[in-house]
Design a protein around this nucleic acid. Sequence first.
DNA 1: TAGTGCGGGGGAC
DNA 2: GTCCCCCGCACTA
Length: 625
Amino acid sequence: MVVLNGYTFKAHYQQLSHSEQHPQHHSHHQQPQQQQQHQPQQQEQQSQTSHLPATSTSTAMTTQKSKRDWDINDAIVPQVADIEFDEFSEWSDGHMRLVYSVHNEEAKKHISGWAMRNTNNHNVNILKKSCLGVLVCSQHCTLPNGSKINLRPAICDKARRKQEGKTCPNKSCRGGRLEIKPCRGHCGYPVTHFWRHSGNAIFFQAKGVHDHLRPDPKNSSVSKRAFGRVALTTGKAASMGSSRSASVAASKKSVISGLVKQVKQQQNLMDKVLKRTTSSNPLTHSALEIYQFNACGKCTTYSHCTCGYLEDTTRAHQLSQSSNYMNSSWPMATAESAPCEPSANVFTVNHQHITYNYPIYHATPTAATAAPSKSPGLPYTCISELSAYQPGLNTQSNLSGYSNANCQLAYETGSQLATPEPEFINYSQIKHLGSGTELGCKGETTPTIKYNATVEAQPVAGYADDNFDYYYNRESKSDYELQQQFAVTHGHSHGHGHGHYYESANSYNGVSYFDTGTTAPSNGSGSGGSVNSSGLNITSGSGSGNSSNSNLNHGSYSSYYDQYSNYEQQMAVAGGFVAAAGGVGVASVANVANTVAPPTPTLTYHHHHHHHLHHAQAQSAHTAH
DNA sequence: TAGTGCGGGGGAC
DNA sequence: GTCCCCCGCACTA
Ligand SMILES: [Zn+2]
Ligand SMILES: [Zn+2]
């Protein structure tokens, strides 16, 4: 099952929606990586295309809204039945959300075919990764099999540095050097993946559409040659993995397949962009879908955004002119910088960096006009396209955290691989969120908090079989929303330079980490969580992660396991929900009656600026005040 | 040796 | 003060 933009896409629905828009695509199941190299990207691709937003796509889909409408940053994410887990998608692309079983080995490892590297978002509960793009030849040479150099950047910084500048593995290439073609698939920033463990599920969310081909696997012939393991003879197929003893026929065959593969990938890549240009009317169904599909929700400009698709014939043209892969940068460089425009009274979601999050929606005419200035020195203009959204249309798309806003960002193609990427609620913003103030783009100061669950303009026919509606679909402000609001308004605290975000709950104190392999401890007994009623300073000795507490799960992904498992279970009983991104402390759930207000998740920020305290120490110091 | 995640902290803003 | 992002550490495969 796939959840996209607030909609649930069961297999058949995916097919349906897909066939409606992209009849050429079918099954959404991904191929194993091995096969990937030999098969067109189509099938994988479709996973992405089928995730085109749904807004008004079809009645079926609209009515399919379910408790699967979650965002990785929701305080509460749905609980998913075992049978509903998605198959692992190695090449997920586009804005999408998947739910895996905690027993899914691949999911547990947070792997991806794309070169995704860890990004420190200072949120131990949500793992963020950003795409490193691909390694290409500076000469853009062509391999004997007709394809281009398209290698997988090493995840390890050191290893990657060694890769860069190496001579092109293509023997027929003169002077080519390997260089990184950074991913800019998410409003000019790298595509990001988010992982979060909760209950019996692993929640995965991807943001952005890769603007580059899938990198060859590390063990590809070209890769081996490039990095010194295997020699690649000029006549041999490069990335197809043909053996040295391959016959001429086999060689030709692989050459062809190599060509076919990359050409198809390229085609798909262009399709991803071109399809966004097919409609020039932002209000048309497809345009709206595309909006939702591509918008990062934070950036508000689309005129130059890599995510853009509106009207952009120029870009499309340039794209189509590019050879096998696009140039190191998008044609946006030639685009004009569009001024920010006020948005209508529409909702959007604030995806500021630093992530604990409850996406912040703002519905102010002027809110979405600020320039995020995400990356200093980089031209980054924002225009809200939200005006395309009429409240009556369907704001459900916002539920997923994606607004129909785009951005424009042009920055140097350098070795900068980090990910200044649009994200979630900003801690500093949280603390400004008070009563009904509003917060616009980064840098603005007048926010109105709206949560995923509450942006809906039009109540959707509910699901009688669970409490989803109760929490998510009620027209009036729900308890859930109130909780969330409380959480946020109280979640702020000592926002200082370096620290981490922790979620805590007023009624909680207890173990911080669970073994992902086991069920969450029953009514957790506390192990050091200390909570104060203000929610300002909550933590536990184990709060810092895997370093200081024997209670910790030393699995590499234990941190992403929801801390609120107990509560989650309670909620599961009560309403089929899983409480969220818990930070520190889970505790006597008994106090948190299932029908009563859930424990208020609060955000705690540990100040470490210029201090070298361990978390436990930091906490003591902190609570001392 | 590389992949992975955690997290300190410099420094730009 | 905020927070992007570089970097090192620990651990694993
Ligand atoms: Zn080359
Ligand atoms: Zn990418």
